[in-house]
Design a protein around this nucleic acid. Structure first.
Length: 697
DNA sequence: GATCCTCGAGTTCT
DNA sequence: CTCGAGGATC
């Protein structure tokens, strides 16, 4: 049955009323009615919508109670990346920022919009014709998670934009956060219900936003503030950022009241000081203030550098500090044998978390700060994340406190400790004999960015290594359920999961595999370069490093020459890989032990040898192309070149014909080259082949 | 030889 | 996130 006229009118009235109360409560901070009265209105509307479903719309306030849990979050690609801001910590850095801006714009006296920098989570809200359709987290800036149902429950996010002239499409950016007093009340409730409390408002907001069950999110006192836009279609932009924010406000979006247009370094510093003085009174946590060039045209002109806009900067307040005691200075052994001194601290709450450890990096740092066991120290979280010892309270030092010194023997395995050349770090020389290094090597092998073996964490690795069950990565692939039975926290289910994860990791890529080996100096990036260059594991194993080095030098010299003449450059061989890295890889591969492990890995199927990286980008690039190799190549053997070509879907034939697409000619090329020229076939030199293999045309 | 930039390694806590 | 080292560039 359709709703009668008066019922429709009543529903409309209720909706307007409820939104007005939401606005009063969450935006103006001045509720007009009690919670009970509000509930009454809300329930009445819910009932009406249940009776007459056609009255319910996507913008009804009843949509804010949350929906059934999602199985998982979907990925969302941001059409305009959500970049982070550069930081400034001092007046000098602010001055430098202002100077860069003025120089780039060629003007004096630039106006800035200054506002607080919320300590929350950046999100993006999409409104299509004024209706809220999608919300996403920032993620890595390029891809985030679709948390629309959760954002729908945030009371001060409008489900429909106000006014007649709403844009066709508008992506609003801002911050989700929790007011401090809301956070405290919520924690009281959590405690009363025996549920886990949150350590700080930021974590609480993050945890709430990541709830798969939006009905839980609906119970959390989250708020939103808008401060920028991403995509906009069907509306003209105002001229300044200040006007933009006013406009957002007129659309019904909450915008922070603490904003001001200022100019000059003096104006910026004044704002910084004013907000800083009132920081503790603000209802939300901030970690600094943001300055944005006010003119949007100028913003566009300034553009972006790397991952940050050039027209804005975050001016941070000093990190919160706290006093505590150094209970001991211990030495940790890393994957490469690096010995890192770590201060074990009496637990102290600072910057929103309880800190118990702080790295001291290396001996130079310990000496520079003169930290000793038993000292009273000031601790802070560098960049508000990594704990660090800021300084020692020397006046409280016990007399005769011994200075810290690096142990001469590795605390884990007793091997000799060395300090190489001018390196800052000391290293354990035990190599894989050292259990600590072996554990770290295994953890690295299994890590997310390497072979991505889920479930193979520190606890398990400790047990596997100490029990002598696993010694090398190759041993992982020999594990059966029987090996894991009886280990701590390894019941049937977990064991099966780990085994399955190990099995799954066999389908990894060559680049990940090279990275997983843990060769010194070979990180993710260099591993990719190596994988791209060699194409197969066998080619890497067979590489003639001396020849490769020589060839690399030759290309580099040639390029230097060409650069001076403004000629087209050759593709560099192994870009980013210099003598040190080549030396490191060659030396790794020259050790029989490492070769053995690689062979075992191969035998157990840890990597299908002909696999190339990245398959999505290069697969079939040379599909249906026929190559003929002739003459001697420098950096590659004939087999290597063949494997590289085949890895990308190409074919290598024995003789030149009209069906041949490319002839690759090395030195002392013979009749095949002559025939190729007769037939007018493209002739490549080695660099040309590399270029083709890398996919640059 | 100096300088800028990128990458690797180590680290914390939830 | 920060530091230091290695590589590229001028």
């Amino acid at each position: 049955m359709a709703a009668s006229q008066p019922t429709q009118a009543r529903a409309r009235k209720l909706r307007t009323e409820i939104e007005r109360h939401n606005d009063q409560y969450y935006v103006r901070d001045a509720p007009l009615v009690s919670d009970a009265e509000y509930d009454l209105l809300f329930r009445e509307l819910q009932q009406l919508e249940r009776d007459y479903p056609e009255l319910a719309g996507p913008d009804s306030p009843t949509q804010r109670v949350g929906a059934a849990p999602l199985p998982q979050f979907e990925q969302v690609t941001h059409r305009v990346p959500m970049l982070s801001l550069g930081n400034a910590f001092s007046e000098e850095e602010v001055t430098a920022f202002d100077r860069r801006v003025r120089d780039a714009l060629g003007t004096d006296g630039v106006a800035y919009l200054a506002e607080p920098k919320f300590d929350g989570l950046a999100i993006s809200l999409t409104y299509a014709r004024g209706l809220f359709t999608q919300g996403a987290t920032r993620g890595d800036g390029y891809t985030g998670e679709d948390v629309t149902p959760n954002l729908r429950t945030i009371k001060n996010i409008p489900l429909r934009l106000k006014g007649r002239a709403v844009p066709e499409l508008l992506e609003v950016r801002g911050e989700v956060l929790m007011y401090r007093r809301d956070f405290e009340q919520m924690n009281l409730r959590q405690r009363a219900r025996g549920e886990k409390e949150f350590v700080n408002p930021r974590n609480a907001a993050a945890g709430s936003l990541r709830q798969l069950d939006s009905r839980i999110t609906a119970q959390r006192p989250l708020r939103f503030f808008a401060y920028a836009i991403g995509v906009i279609e069907g509306a003209a932009l105002p001229e300044t950022h200040a006007e933009l924010e006013n406009w957002l406000q007129s659309l019904g979006l909450p915008v922070c009241a603490e904003r001001r247009v200022v100019s000059g370094v003096q104006g910026l510093m004044q704002f910084y000081g004013d907000v800083g003085a009132r920081r503790a009174e603000l209802p939300y946590a901030i970690d600094g203030v943001v300055y944005k060039v006010n003119s949007l045209a100028a913003q566009e002109q300034l553009g972006y550098v790397a991952r940050a806009p050039r027209f804005a900067v975050a001016h941070k307040y000093p990190a919160e500090e706290a006093a505590t005691e150094v209970q001991a200075i211990e030495v940790q052994v890393g994957r490469t044998g690096a010995l890192t001194p770590v201060a074990r601290l009496k637990p102290v709450f600072v910057g929103g978390v309880t800190v118990t450890n702080a790295t001291l990096h290396n001996l130079d740092q310990v000496r520079a700060k003169d930290v000793r066991a038993g000292d009273s120290v000031i601790v802070r979280r560098a960049g508000d994340v990594i704990p660090e010892v800021a300084r020692v309270l020397l006046e409280r030092r016990a007399p005769g406190a011994p200075e810290f010194s690096m142990p001469a023997k590795c605390p884990e395995c007793g091997s000799k400790v060395e300090r190489l050349k001018s390196e800052a770090v000391y290293r354990c020389t035990g190599g894989l004999f050292c259990p600590a290094q072996r554990k770290q090597a295994l953890l690295h092998f299994a890590s997310r960015r390497a072979m991505d073996i889920e479930g193979l964490g520190e606890k398990l690795v400790d047990q596997l290594v100490e029990g002598g069950i696993v010694r090398t990565p190759a041993d992982l692939y020999l594990l059966g359920a029987g090996n894991l039975a009886g280990l701590e926290r390894m019941a049937e289910k977990s064991a099966a999961n780990v085994i399955a994860a190990i099995e799954k990791s066999k389908k990894s890529s060559l680049a990940r595999f090279f990275f997983a080996l843990g060769i010194y100096h070979v990180g993710e990036e260099i591993a990719k370069v190596l994988a791209r260059h060699f194409g197969t594991l066998q080619c890497l194993l067979d590489a003639d490093w001396a020849a490769l080095s020589a060839e690399k030098d030759r290309v580099q010299k040639e390029n230097t020459r060409r650069r001076n003449k403004d000629e087209a450059l050759l593709d560099a061989i192994l870009p980013g890989v210099g003598p040190e890295i080549i030396q490191s890889v060659a030396s790794f591969l020259s050790q029989p032990h490492n070769r053995e492990v690689i062979e075992q890995l191969r035998a157990s199927g840890a990597l299908i040898d002909r696999q190339i990286e990245p398959p999505s980008k290069t697969a079939g690039k040379l599909h249906d192309k026929t190559f003929v190799l002739t003459g001697a190549l420098r950096g590659l053997s004939r087999d290597q070149a063949k494997a590289l070509i085949e890895a990308q879907g190409g074919k290598v034939a024995g003789s030149v014909s009209s069906k041949t697409d490319y002839v690759v000619a090395g030195s002392e090329a013979g009749s095949k080259l002559a025939r190729a020229e007769e037939l007018g076939i493209t002739v490549l030199d080695e660099a040309g082949l590399q270029q083709l293999l890398k996919g640059h045309r």
